[in-house]
Design a protein around this nucleic acid. Structure first.
Length: 281
DNA sequence: AAACAGGCCTAAA
DNA sequence: TTTAGGCCTGTT
């Protein structure tokens, strides 16, 4: 990866495996939106940015220190995804899935935001998840003026912990409201230390997260993968169940993919969701 | 209109 | 330990 910094943006050159559409639309995040010119705008860790493709380069608005302090890490730019993809080609199906999904990168999202977002995701579809998350930010986040518009940060767990589920009514999250407040309180009251979880083992993180009401195996694994950035976490939802049963037998375990099983999961999920699977099968 | 959507909880075998 | 039914809400 190389980059050049200009007055108000950074241009990333010589990078493989970075496709904006695949990265933002593979289902791992909910706050990036594309306009008619293919420019994505979003907010992460309280900073708004625009990001777009120019030929084989990718540009991110902002100054060099923002790029170096935040975006480089957020987009996991120093990881060699093409080598990982190759290592995941354990069979013909994975060769197809990784080829199809080449360009996906796993974002290093804020831990609390990932927890809250994936609590919201349960039994929901993506448009509604995005709607609830945006409402949460609009109602309780901090306004950020950027490019002539107002965006909102994701509210901190300290803010949400002070609310009652009833006060979350405007975001229309339904039965998830009490889960959201409960998770925020667990953090603020010291029962859950997500920074510490990130330093510990996968098993201990899973156990700690599942103690929260509204967090089961699937949500916990999403949080571990996208929030704690443990790339062996392997969330299994209805789509993954389907695709696993179609391509593997009962003895399947994510261990066959090794330490990057979570990335394998994301390729499988994206491939399954695309509907391309059956076509070439 | 009834079923479903990227689960989870609780109660009951 | 596994399994059904219910859950907020919005969309089809």
């Amino acid at each position: 990866m190389r980059y050049n910094t200009y007055e108000n943006y950074t241009k990333i050159t010589a990078i493989s495996d970075f496709n904006l559409k695949k990265t933002f639309e593979c289902g791992q995040c909910f706050r990036w939106n594309v306009d008619e010119n293919g420019v994505y705008t979003g907010v992460a860790f309280g900073k708004a940015a625009k990001i777009w493709t120019e030929g084989t380069s990718i540009c991110i608005s902002g100054r060099e220190d923002d790029f170096l302090s935040y975006w480089r890490d957020y987009f996991d730019l120093d990881r060699d995804y093409s080598a990982i993809r190759e290592s995941l080609c354990v069979d013909n199906y994975m060769r197809k899935a990784t080829t199809f999904g080449a360009g996906i990168r796993i974002l290093r999202q804020n831990k609390w935001e990932a927890l809250c977002s994936f609590i919201i995701s349960q039994c929901n579809n993506i448009p509604r998840i995005k709607g609830i998350v945006e409402a949460l930010c609009r109602e309780f986040g901090e306004p950020i003026e950027f490019d002539g518009k107002i965006y909102y940060s994701f509210p901190g767990s300290d803010t949400i912990a002070k609310l009652t589920p009833e006060q979350l009514a405007p975001i229309r999250s339904g039965f998830r409201a009490s889960y959201i407040v409960g998770a925020a309180k667990a953090i603020e009251e010291g029962y859950l230390d997500m920074d510490a979880l990130a330093e510990g083992s996968y098993e201990s993180a899973l156990k700690a997260l599942k103690k929260l009401k509204g967090v089961g195996d699937k949500v916990a694994n999403c949080v571990i993968l996208f929030g704690l950035n443990m790339l062996n976490a392997f969330p299994v939802d209805v789509w993954m169940k389907r695709t696993i049963s179609e391509h593997y037998d009962k003895s399947f375990t994510p261990d066959v993919f090794g330490e990057y099983a979570g990335i394998a999961q994301q390729y499988m999920f994206y491939y399954a969701r695309s509907g391309q699977e059956e076509i070439g099968a």
